[in-house]
Amino acid sequence: MLTEEKMKGGKGADTALQPSDLERALYLMKRARALDERVLSLQRQGKVIGTYAPFSGQEAAQIGAVMAMESNDWLFPTYRDGAALTAFGYPLSYLFAFPTGVDARWKRPEKLHLWPPAISIASHLPHAVGFAMAAQFRHDPLVVLAFCGDGATSEGDFHEALNLAGLFHAPVVLVIENNGYAISLPRSRQTASATLAQKAEAYGFPGVQVDGHDLLAVYTVVRRAVERARQGEGPTLIKPEVSLCPHTTADDPTKYRSKEELEAERKKDPLPRLTQYLREQGAWDDTKEQQATDRIVEELHRAEREAVKLAEADPRVIFDNVYAHPPKTFLAQRNAFLRELREGGAPS
């Protein structure tokens, strides 16, 4: 999923990351971070009216995992996987539109193998398993990669999905982004299990821990899991440890986390880590840094402009997509509602 060539080739055997892949990865990480920061800055200016879930600190885990996928594979993300989405080809403009109050997040380009980002916790994991089982049934060699957070591991849907995946050898890779907190609840109060990875063991398949700040490490373990799934060897659970930003724009983490803890998290930042590695390899320098920055600024500007155009002001869309074939009573309700809006004057 990394470069155009790789997407076209889709060769499972060609798994080693080339220097150009890493440059691309670093660019995607920087772009994702810039987008996250831009949306938060818009929020401070009062331009974000919806709820937004930041992902800064989780770029290596998300992008590293997506890079390990092939073009035929499917992604089942959550609301916090913006970095994964942008690396997967999801339009940046949609990510800008959503926090400014446009339902664009639910749209997706037709050809993108993407499940709508799950808002409910762990609700998409049974879907991911069922999707993978259907592909298996049709002898389609695709693999499903699903993300969830550490808090999701306490939900019934998580456990029932894992049980099913193990039982049916579903070609699923489940990536638990362990950022250590479910809103205010620390991981230590979420479960008495020593690790989250060991939960997979109870359901009969491997669980792997990895440092989620290390893009190369994440890529390597996810790639192995994807190949394993494609060869019919069943699911893998992968738990990258990542850093945490606030739960959403409605959250204030200083209420339940100490300054020292937040500062220590910042030091693990995956971006300087990969930048330094590439510099040491001679694959990154000040010129490339400047070029990347310029290009990111331009891409984000364009996306923001496009996002404005996505705004929907036509109230008729409220009634769209509720039914494939709207019942008569529903259409009557729609017509009456729209008539009243016209007569009563549309609310501001």
Partner: peptide
């Protein structure tokens, strides 16, 4: 009306 509640501000107000 019997529709899911819209996310968008103006649409939710409708």
């Amino acid at each position: 009306p019997d529709v899911p509640i819209p996310y968008s501000d103006p649409l939710e107000n409708f």
